[in-house]
């Protein structure tokens, strides 16, 4: 464990909690893409299948359980508890355009052709594109509440910190996980445009980030 990965995991946890609290306290999921949250729940489900078969550390196990629980709680709030505030009309991204290439690629590129490895690879590739429905929804509505942008900021920061973690691990222990690194770089690139808007617009203290 290094400080970059720990900061990344904390940033990821903060992002998930920010979103969950926003929905719970405002009792509304307006402006939130339920599809992205479904995809994130699928990412955690397919990645943490080893939760009960492999014990790495208390931290690892606890964080996996927390991420699974919070992501399912978020999906529950969106599609069940506050479903009448779910903006399905603007949450219109065709997720099959993401799932088909990700499934295909995880069958092409993986470390071993075993169910666990292919599902893990699927979860890595899926995580890179899971935010697309949310970013698409923001471009469609033309704006995002500032709390939603904070959520996106910490979510993008988490993977950017993981890249620093991979650089650090490469130089200190020769660790290099090509699938995770390539996918993580692609994922972070998707956020760059948003990061620019976030820094130039939201940090100036405007309540909503309206896209140009």
């Amino acid at each position: 464990m290094n400080v970059f990965r720990l900061a990344g995991d904390v940033s990821h946890l903060v992002a998930i909690i920010i979103l969950l609290l926003k929905i719970w306290r405002s009792r509304s999921c307006a402006g939130i893409s339920g599809k992205s949250q479904l995809l994130f729940a699928l990412v955690f489900t397919t990645r943490y299948l080893d939760l009960f078969t492999v014990y790495i550390s208390a931290y690892n196990t606890i964080m996996k359980v927390v991420f699974l629980a919070l992501s399912y709680a978020t999906v529950y709030l969106i599609y069940m508890r506050f479903r009448n505030t779910y903006d399905s009309e603007n949450d219109s991204f065709r997720v099959e355009f993401l799932l088909v290439p990700v499934i295909g690629l995880s069958f092409l590129e993986h470390y071993a052709f075993t169910p666990m490895e292919v599902l893990w690879t699927f979860s890595i590739f899926l995580e890179a594109v899971a935010i697309m429905p949310q970013l698409f929804m923001i471009t469609k509505t033309g704006e995002a509440e500032s709390i939603t942008t904070h959520y996106l900021f910490f979510l993008g920061l988490y993977r950017a910190l993981y890249i620093a973690n991979w650089v650090w691990r490469y130089h200190t222990e020769g660790f290099f996980d090509q699938i995770a690194v390539v996918s993580g770089v692609v994922q972070t690139i998707f956020y760059c445009d948003f990061f620019y808007l976030y820094v130039t617009k939201v940090v100036q203290g405007r309540s909503k980030m309206s896209l140009p």
Binding site: D50, V54, I56, N60, Y162, N165, D177, A180
Partner: peptide, 10 residues
Amino acid sequence: RLHSKPKDEL
């Protein structure tokens, strides 16, 4: 080929 590795990362 790429070798698998213990998945200690979240």
